[in-house]
Design a protein around this nucleic acid. Structure first.
Length: 571
RNA sequence: CGGGAUAUAGCGCAGUCCGGUAGCGCGCUUGCUUUGGGAGCAAGAUGUCGGGGGUUCGAAUCCCUCUAUCCCGACCA
């Protein structure tokens, strides 16, 4: 491609409304432009990268799955059948056609694929099957942000597998796990598969694939031995010791008029924060028979809302009681709550269960109990894993301790089970000649998000630094003073032809601009390899090479340039 | 949806408090010079000052209202 023929829309200045670096650089490099909130046009340069990501995804998926293409618009009937027409909130973009029939723009395609498979697949002999597509999805996010990272319209690769046994599902799940590793390896990203919560999509086992980057929105937990990785939503928090130490203090009621928060309590009474607990009141499920339930975590820990929501006694979505409700039920304000004499059911975190001589609100305004010990002063309530893990916690697999890094979720694989196939009566005839409900798996990759996450992970002051596999161009040729040197013109044209013939994806910088301008643009656009053709070097039979991450030029013999580049790109 | 902010040329911003002919830098156009790290000189083009309403002799500026965008929170396969 000749640069003079390419729409290069680079910006010197950063648009004011771009927050994260990938968004800024995608705008500056001329990859995308915003149309409306959460909607982006892909310019030629950005589309080249997007297509390369898609190609790698397809090549790996095609090894074990078949590609289909489903409609973006979907009839309401299917969503009513699965129950999600009501379940899904305003995030589902709904509309009516000219006949006043309800439709939505698909945020995901479980319903459509399940409908298709139940019509086409009749016998267990046709299973397992794994179907995927690369499609534009729409989710009417409350707050789209970070450019293409959390946009409303985005491109996703979604795959769905169908089985008659859990073993078969597990087999495909394992294959997809490996496929995802192969995809992200080829994309050249620093990523980790981690254990994940299933969220509202339902089902059992699941892994997320995260690109590691400080700007990530998720906390990823690792152990020091490299044997455990999980999203913090899922990471199991183990108690620091097997059982509580023996009491050394007496239980006492203390006036704490100015201590509404744990920090104030710890500072004013010189307590060890690990010897304090905080008590949170949330709505209970109807089945539990209570209106509210108390959740107790240690003063230095934070509640894991996903774990809380997954408890049988806790209403989903997790809803905190208002101050008025707390006063009505307990008779004290939020700053003075505790497990002693609590009139509602109580669940304590594992770390709280092994605390001794600890302090807690007295359920009397401006009073706390200090020196509390389970068993002696109050009965030990239900114990559960309620908190977020923190750095230094013991790993749940018993190996080493935990550390936390930020990650961007770019892939998610689920064992769905029969949630959709049951609701939509997707059955096949089994070996016994009776209908069997199919078991499903689903596997997603956020294609557009992958592009942004690659930039979050690979950039410097000058711009993007693409992994070769997804760079819009692999190598750029920059002729110096081409307008006045025939030698340079001829040599660079020949080099351009040779590199193209050798299969390189090459950008020929033939624009009528000054060299510094071109260098800056190429660096902003993140082209991984650059060859400068100058009269000086040519006279010595040499070309100048500079990798995007290199500090200095390297002189190479002109007749070895193909081998040199092949070596650099490990071809 | 709650809290905070912004809206002036393609981009980044000043001007608004204190009403009086719409500005700066970058980019863009033309010419000349220049060409190894975002060139110099000269001449130009570009604005319903987010929309609507009001106050006023006069509104980018004051008042009301709507809209859009961004940030924090809630939400999020």
């Amino acid at each position: 491609m000749r640069a003079s023929q390419l729409l290069i829309s680079t910006l010197k200045e950063t648009p004011a409304d771009a927050e994260v670096i990938s968004h800024q650089l995608m705008l500056r490099a001329g990859m995308i432009r915003r149309l409306a909130s959460g909607l982006y046009t892909w310019l030629p340069l950005g589309l080249r990268t997007l297509r390369k990501v898609e190609r790698i995804v397809r090549e790996e998926m095609d090894k074990s799955a078949q590609e289909v293409l489903m409609p973006a618009a979907q009839p309401a009937e299917l969503w009513q059948e699965s129950g999600r027409w009501e379940q899904y909130g305003p995030e589902l973009l709904r509309f009516k056609d000219r006949h006043d029939r309800d439709f939505c723009v698909g945020p995901t395609h479980e319903e459509v694929i399940t409908d298709m498979v139940r019509r086409e697949i009749k016998s267990y002999k046709q299973l397992p099957i794994n179907l995927y597509q690369v499609q534009t999805k729409f989710r009417d996010e409350i707050r789209p942000r970070f450019g293409v990272m959390r946009s409303r319209e985005f491109i996703m690769k979604d795959a769905y597998s169908f089985h008659t046994s859990q073993e078969s599902l597990q087999e495909t799940y394992d294959v997809m796990y490996q496929t995802y590793c192969n995809i992200f390896d080829r994309l050249g990203l620093n990523y980790r598969p981690v254990l994940a919560d299933n969220g509202s999509i339902g089902g059992s086992g699941s892994h997320e694939f995260h690109v590691l980057a400080d700007s990530g929105e998720d906390d990823i937990v690792f152990n020091t031995e490299g044997t455990y990785a999980a999203n913090i939503e899922k990471a199991e928090a183990v108690a620091s010791k097997a059982q509580a130490d023996a009491p050394t203090e007496e239980m006492r009621l203390v006036d704490t008029p100015n201590a509404k928060t744990i920090e104030e309590l710890v500072t004013q009474f010189d307590l060890n924060i690990e010897k304090t607990v905080k008590t949170l009141i949330v709505r209970a499920t109807e089945e539990s028979g209570a209106q509210f339930v108390a959740l107790v975590v240690r003063g230095d820990h934070s509640l894991n809302e996903i774990k809380a929501e997954n408890l049988a006694q806790v209403a989903a979505p997790l809803t905190f009681a208002t101050e008025d409700e707390i006063r009505a039920v307990i008779g004290a304000g939020p700053g003075s709550l505790g497990p002693v004499n609590l009139p509602i059911p109580c669940i304590v975190d594992r770390s709280v269960a092994v605390a001794s001589d600890f302090g807690a609100g007295a359920n009397i305004d401006d009073k706390h109990y200090f020196g509390l010990n389970w068993g002696r002063d109050l009965p030990l309530p239900t114990v559960a894993d309620l908190r977020n893990v923190v750095e230094g916690d013991a790993s749940p697999d018993g190996k080493g301790t935990l550390s936390i890094k930020r990650g961007i979720e770019v892939g998610h694989i689920f064992q769905l089970g029969t949630k959709y196939s049951e609701a939509m009566k997707a059955t096949v005839l089994g070996e016994e000649g009776k209908p069997v409900t199919m078991i499903m798996g689903c596997y997603g990759i956020g294609v557009t998000r992958v592009v942004a996450s690659a930039i979050e992970q690979n950039h410097d002051e000058s711009g993007i630094i693409w992994p070769e596999a997804i760079a819009p161009f692999e190598v750029a040729i920059v002729p110096m003073n081409a307008h006045k040197s025939e030698m340079v013109r001829d040599a660079s044209e020949k080099l351009y032809a040779d590199l193209k013939a050798a299969g390189f994806d090459v950008l020929f910088e033939d624009r009528d601009e000054r060299p510094g301008f071109k260098f800056a643009d190429l660096e902003l656009m993140g082209i991984p390899h650059r060859i400068v053709v100058g009269e000086r070097g040519l006279k010595e039979g040499q070309l100048e090479y500079k990798g995007r991450r290199d500090a200095e030029n390297t002189m190479i013999a002109a007749d070895t340039v193909l081998d040199f580049l092949k070596e650099k790109m490990s071809r």
